[in-house]
């Protein structure tokens, strides 16, 4: 009885104060170009690492068995793998262009002052790169050429 009433009172007292917890871990830090370029660099870097791992394995297969190598390479000539190649070129292109930006940041005072502009230049060059590659690759996959 006493315990019950105490809990009711404390619940009543606390109810108006407590709002439904929204992300108790805190909000996502709102970093700008520098932070997001680092996030993209890390994601593409890890993805490229796993690609290289598989790439070294499939290439070294030719020493073991040329027939097995041919079978694996033929399995890459499917539309799914073709789309995967687009993702691969996109990741490597972004990692390479942003990598040049990071080199400029690490070695020049100019780089630290103009890192935001350099990020957008890298994105611009990346879009041009993909604009040249993606249509040709899509024709290659779906045009049957």
């Amino acid at each position: 009885m006493t315990a019950e009433s105490v809990s009711t009172v404390s619940a009543e007292r606390r109810t108006p104060k407590i709002v439904t917890p929204r992300r108790p871990a805190g909000t996502v830090y709102r970093g700008r170009e520098g932070m997001w370029s680092w996030v993209l660099h890390r994601i593409t870097g890890v993805a490229i690492y796993f690609f290289l791992l598989v790439h070294i394995l499939d290439t070294s297969l030719v020493r073991v068995s040329p027939e097995a190598y041919n079978a694996v390479i033929n399995s890459y000539k499917t539309p799914i793998m073709g789309l995967g190649e687009i993702a691969l070129v996109a990741a490597i292109g972004l990692h390479a262009l942003n990598g040049l930006r990071i080199i400029a940041i690490d070695f020049t005072g100019f780089g630290t002052r103009h890192q935001k502009a350099m990020f957008w230049v890298a994105i611009g060059l990346w879009v041009v790169l993909l604009a040249g590659f993606v249509p040709r690759q899509l024709m290659h996959i779906f045009g049957g050429a």
């Binding site: 700008r32 520098g34 932070m35 990071i102 690490d106 780089g111 002052r113 890192q115």
Partner: peptide, 20 residues
């Protein structure tokens, strides 16, 4: 070099530049 520090500094110190 995420530049979060340079953006956050209330005194406008070019922190990432100093680290570089």
């Amino acid at each position: 070099t995420t530049f979060n520090c340079s953006e956050a500094c209330p005194r406008g110190i070019e922190v990432t530049k100093a680290i570089a």
